[in-house]
Amino acid sequence: MLNNFEKARKSKRIRLVDIAELIGVKYQTVSEKINGKSSFKLDEVLLISKTYFPEYKIEYLFKDDEQEEL
């Protein structure tokens, strides 16, 4: 799960539907990507970061907290 992303999104009161509309997918698809069932594409990551979270590093926002560190 993308916990950092979720914390930032909720603190800014950005709805999942807003992100879905921005990247052109369904609300459910965004939820699945956040929960680790699928992944955000690079162009989606860049657009979301630029639009809603320019103050955060991409590595911080999109760090999968369930993946093991190498």
Rank of each mutant, 00 (worst) to 15 (best):
Y56F: 03
R15E: 08
K63N: 05
N35D: 10
G36V: 04
D64L: 01
T51F: 02
L2M: 09
I48Y: 01
S38K: 04
M1H: 09
K41R: 01
V17P: 11
Q67C: 14
K37S: 00
L70D: 15
E6C: 11
L42T: 14
K10A: 02
S38M: 13
V17R: 14
T51V: 11
D64G: 09
N35P: 14
F40R: 08
Q28W: 02
V45H: 07
E68W: 10
E44S: 08
Y27D: 12
D65N: 03
R9L: 06
Y27W: 13
L47H: 09
E68Q: 05
Q67T: 08
S49A: 15
I34V: 08
I23H: 03
I14H: 07
L2V: 06
K57Y: 00
I48G: 02
K63Y: 05
L22A: 04
K12Q: 03
K33Q: 08
I34Q: 13
R13C: 06
S31V: 10
F62T: 00
I19S: 06
G24C: 09
D18L: 10
L16G: 14
E6D: 15
K26L: 13
E21A: 09
Y52H: 05
D64A: 14
K37H: 12
V45Q: 03
Q67N: 15
G36M: 02
K50E: 15
Q67S: 13
I48K: 09
Y60E: 11
Q67A: 12
L16T: 14
I14C: 10
E69A: 10
K10M: 10
N4A: 14
S39E: 15
K26I: 07
L61G: 00
M1V: 02
Y27M: 00
D43R: 08
P54G: 00
L16Q: 15
Y52P: 12
Q28C: 01
I14L: 08
S39C: 03
K41H: 11
E69G: 09
E69L: 02
A8T: 06
L22G: 11
N3C: 07
S49E: 13
E68A: 13
L42V: 04
M1Q: 03
K57D: 14
K57T: 06
Y56G: 14
D43H: 11
Y56V: 01
F62H: 10
N3Q: 10
I14D: 10
E32S: 06
E69Y: 03
I48V: 09
L16W: 15
T51I: 00
S49H: 04
R15Q: 15
Q28P: 05
N4W: 13
E21F: 06
I14K: 03
F5H: 01
K50C: 12
A20K: 09
N3I: 11
R9I: 07
E32W: 12
L61F: 13
F5S: 03
E6A: 04
K50Y: 12
I19A: 08
A20L: 10
V17I: 15
L61R: 00
S11L: 09
D65P: 03
Y52L: 04
Y60R: 13
E66H: 05
